[in-house]
Computed example of a mutant assay.
Amino acid sequence: MFRTAPRMAGFVFRENRVPYYQRLFQNHDGKRQWWKTSRSGYIMYPYLVTVYGLGAATTYAMCRMVFGKKTWFGDK
């Protein structure tokens, strides 16, 4: 029974994608490795927004503290 579970999942006669990805990642086209696939943007754009957004928010909060604004609400 357990030998047929991978077959039912469709893994036995699956296309071998290793040569395709090997050619893709060894191609010297000037792109970084993390931008090579067509699905890279789905991972990279949220990551970049998070990294640069948190960096900007942290810098903004640090500048507020340096100039004496220590609280966000109720500044009088």
Rank of each mutant, 00 (worst) to 15 (best):
F11L: 11
K70V: 10
F73I: 15
V18F: 14
R64A: 07
G68T: 06
S40G: 11
A9M: 10
A9I: 11
K36N: 06
Q26F: 09
A56N: 06
T37I: 02
K70W: 07
Y21G: 01
M44N: 13
V49R: 04
A5H: 13
Y21C: 05
A56P: 02
L48E: 12
R39H: 08
R64Q: 15
E15P: 01
A57I: 06
A9L: 14
T71L: 05
S40Q: 05
R39K: 04
V66R: 03
G68V: 07
C63D: 12
P46S: 12
T58L: 12
M65P: 00
W35C: 09
P6A: 00
Y47T: 08
V18L: 12
R17W: 05
G55D: 00
F2Y: 06
P19N: 09
Y45D: 01
R32T: 07
H28E: 15
R7M: 09
M8T: 03
N27R: 13
D29W: 09
M8H: 04
L48I: 14
R23T: 08
Q22T: 14
Y20P: 00
G30L: 05
P19I: 03
W34L: 11
V12F: 02
Y47C: 08
A5M: 14
F13R: 11
G68W: 12
Y20D: 02
P19F: 05
I43E: 10
P6M: 01
R3N: 04
Q33E: 11
T71W: 09
F25H: 10
V51Y: 08
R64C: 07
G68N: 06
Q22P: 00
I43R: 11
G41Q: 07
S40K: 04
A56C: 04
Y52D: 00
Q33K: 03
K69E: 13
L54V: 01
G30T: 10
L48H: 11
Q22W: 11
V18C: 02
T4L: 08
Q26V: 03
M62C: 05
D75S: 08
M44W: 13
L54N: 14
M44F: 12
Y45N: 11
L48P: 03
M65I: 13
N27E: 08
W34A: 02
H28P: 10
S38V: 11
G10T: 01
Y21N: 09
G53I: 05
E15V: 00
W35K: 12
K70Q: 06
L54M: 15
T37Q: 09
A56W: 12
T37E: 13
V49K: 09
A57V: 07
T59Y: 03
T50W: 10
R3D: 01
Q33T: 02
F13D: 14
L24R: 03
Y20A: 05
F11Y: 07
Y20T: 03
F2L: 14
A56Y: 06
V12G: 00
W34H: 12
